[in-house]
């Protein structure tokens, strides 16, 4: 915490006005320290991004042509719809798996909880290629997952090369982003409220529905929106586990960029994802406070908040 007002012994007997230059020097030093990172980010990220955004409106010719093409060529719209659907399914399945897990974390002893945090972060910190290769082996035709499914009567389900297989792998890796925000909200819920509800005659189920669920909702919203947004941009997983017939938007962006060098068209798709991302995050911020940012920090910092 910068304590700019509370350091009297700095300059033996600094008069009140003497602090001003010190504060200014401090700010100059801060700026100087920040400058290299800011310049690097602006040079290699912000300016090129602006360039792509502008290009998406001007590239072959000025106007909204690139955007209109997205909605009129039929194919892109279908891919976009599939991407949104996969992202939604991943979010919902993640919610179903993550909610009980996060709830269990609030009940567990500190040691168990530490283990559970580590476990939930394992996919996040396993090599992306190794993880996807493993899923490829598991869900291939005649693979382990198919064997398990046929045991429960679902024989002959093809997973490799379908959106279902892609969603399976995506759910696994996105689960940390679901669990940690929910956990951080659930942890703050006063469990005496549940006892109060039950002592007033409500059943366990209706206490959960009327008390716990609404109180945990901010965590659900920030986790869910984070997972949804991240799912929109997946490239490696659909490229490896999906097929051209089940392509997601990132694959189309890649083809447009690398094979067709159509930066205007690819840029328009990129801008579309970016806009959806910002809207979803903005909405979740309004609905759930700053949980999303906190969650991103938690995940990035290895979950030790």
């Amino acid at each position: 915490m910068p304590a700019s007002t509370a350091s009297p012994p700095t300059a033996a007997s600094a008069p009140p006005a003497g602090r001003r230059p010190a504060a200014r020097r401090r700010r100059a030093a801060a700026l100087l320290l920040l400058l290299p990172a800011l310049i690097a980010l602006i040079l290699f990220f912000v300016l090129p991004l602006l360039d792509i955004i502008i290009g998406s409106f001007t590239d072959p010719e000025p106007g909204l042509g690139n955007y209109l093409a997205l909605f009129s060529d039929g194919y892109t719209l279908r891919v976009l719809g599939r991407t949104l659907l996969v992202a939604l399914i991943v979010t919902l399945v993640g919610l179903l798996l993550g909610y009980p897990y996060a709830y269990m974390m609030t009940l567990a002893s500190p040691t168990t909880r530490a283990v559970m945090v580590t476990v939930v972060l394992v996919p996040f910190w396993t090599s992306m290629m190794a993880r996807n290769f493993a899923w490829m082996v598991l869900i291939q035709d005649g693979g382990v997952v198919q064997g398990i499914l046929s045991l429960v009567g679902l024989s002959g389900v093809t997973l490799l090369g379908t959106a279902t297989g892609v969603a399976l792998s995506m759910t696994q890796v996105l689960l940390p982003f679901m669990v940690l925000p929910m956990f951080s909200v659930m942890q703050q819920i006063d469990r005496r409220l549940l006892l109060a509800g039950q002592s007033l005659g409500a059943s366990r189920l209706s206490t959960f529905r009327k008390v716990y669920l609404p109180l945990s909702l901010p965590g659900v919203i920030s986790g869910g929106s984070l997972v949804f947004v991240l799912a929109l941009g997946f490239y490696v997983t659909p490229a490896l586990l999906g097929s051209p017939q089940s392509a997601l938007i990132a694959q189309i962006i890649s083809v447009r960029t690398r094979d067709l060098l159509d930066f205007g068209g690819a840029g328009a798709m990129g801008v579309l994802i970016l806009v959806v991302t910002l809207i979803a995050l903005g909405a979740s911020r309004r609905l759930a406070g700053t949980g999303t940012a906190v969650a991103a920090h938690a995940v990035a910092a290895g979950g030790d908040r």
């Binding site: 990172a37 800011l38 980010l41 290699f44 990220f45 300016l47 090129p48 991004l49 360039d51 792509i52 290009g55 947004v229 991240l230 929109l232 941009g233 997946f234 490239y235 990132a250 962006i253 890649s254 960029t257 690398r258 930066f263 690819a266 840029g267 990129g270 994802i273 970016l274 991302t277 995050l281 940012a293 991103a296 990035a300």
Partner: peptide
């Protein structure tokens, strides 16, 4: 400074590639 975390990697790849 943290914004690259939220931006999908595919978009970063597109942007960096063109630049």
């Amino acid at each position: 400074l943290l914004s690259p975390i939220i931006i999908p990697n595919i978009l970063i790849a597109l942007v960096v590639f063109s630049a």
